[in-house]
Design a protein around this nucleic acid. Structure first.
Lengths: 202, 202
DNA sequence: ACAGTTCTCTACCAAATGGTAGAGAACGAG
DNA sequence: CTCGTTCTCTACCATTTGGTAGAGAACTGT
């Protein structure tokens, strides 16, 4: 039984940040060990191989994101646009403070197919529910109609893209101070609201 | 003088794909050499170091993207939404066929600051012009008003995100056949149109 | 034909990588 | 106190990494 597995959690946390920031391949076990403040062997005690560590990091991250989203959905208002805004705000906070979280999801396509598949399978139920919900709201005329799957992916791509690509923001001269963050969030919400709001005419 | 620098161009091309697909750090010189079909030393003859190769790949990619965008802008109609659609379609084709192109831009944030800065500086004039243009159209009431810099970044993030994240699309069950591609492109255009169109009321 | 440049190769190297072997603290249970 | 488990450490290793040294084709202009 684990006496106090604080080390294990710390390793997971640091590895998440490093992998998300620099990419899985670019981070060595030595770097992680140094960052955590232990010897490399300690890492290999808790996770028998780097692949195993990566796998655990991915699983923990996916689970964490799923929890955040689920909680936001449950606490959200009924109007679909308000609900989307609530979810986006919930994801935006941890995502911007720790870009590694969403950055990690982007690393997925570079991992071996099995790891990929496992994490993907973990997230699919969430995506399926979102698609069903969006289709329902589209048919009710409360969201702009379109292919629900693709629209979900587009909204996700927008949020992930903006949160994980500091370069794009730097090129347009954006400032990452508190005021800048607030403005970014409000523009993001306005952008998504406009893109998802139902057509007014007909 | 270069006798026939076909090898150099081939190296650049393959390296672009490999870097964009797997990340700069994850691709070794040996892999590139094998992919090109020459010895590693031949790479180091044309590009004295890996850093140098990376730098040239980034510059060539940025230049190529800039050319595509500029051409699309010049040939585009006057209405801002039509113009945006034209640019998106122009970028979408090469981006989806070679995700490495946009994937490379995402690699920027993982490169040393100077390389980063150089490529960034190369793209800034393009971004500045886009921002000025968007501000003008917003004030003329032909685009939804907002912070032009951030809106540009959001539109860019949407296009890049959807083109470089096959995982997001797989999770929602999207098919990458020809019909799927066409549907994806049309949904992307509709999504962007809706998010940028001016508010109808007032 | 010859000299010089252009291009690609084989052979090697020091450093870093993921991983193994096994010793030795630190702790709780009897 | 002592035994066994939990945890972290210091060596050490085979492989791969980016990079160097330098030889030898192959083509050029004269």
């Amino acid at each position: 039984m684990a006496r106090r597995s604080g080390t294990r959690d710390l390793i997971l946390e640091r590895a998440t940040d490093l992998f998300g920031r620099w990419g899985v391949e670019a981070v060595s076990l030595d770097q992680i060990a140094q960052d955590v403040g232990v010897a490399k062997q300690t890492l290999l005690y808790w996770f028998p191989s780097k692949d195993d560590l990566v796998e655990n990091v991915m699983a923990a991250t996916a689970a964490e994101l799923a929890v955040v989203v689920e909680a936001a959905i449950r606490a959200a208002p009924d109007d679909p646009l308000d609900r989307i805004e609530a979810v986006v705000k919930a994801v935006f906070r941890p995502a911007v403070r720790r870009p590694a979280l969403l950055g990690l999801i982007r690393e997925l396509s570079r991992l071996p197919a099995e790891t990929n598949e496992r994490v993907t399978r973990h997230l699919r139920p969430l995506a399926d529910r979102a698609i069903d919900w969006m289709r329902y709201e589209m048919e009710a005329g409360r969201l702009r109609s379109g292919d629900p799957s693709i629209v979900i992916a587009l909204a996700y791509a927008t949020v992930t893209g903006i949160a994980t690509e500091p370069e794009a923001l730097r090129v347009v001269g954006w400032n990452s101070d508190t005021a800048g963050l607030r403005r970014l969030r409000s523009e993001l919400v306005a952008f998504l609201r406009a893109s998802l709001a139902p057509e007014r005419s007909t």
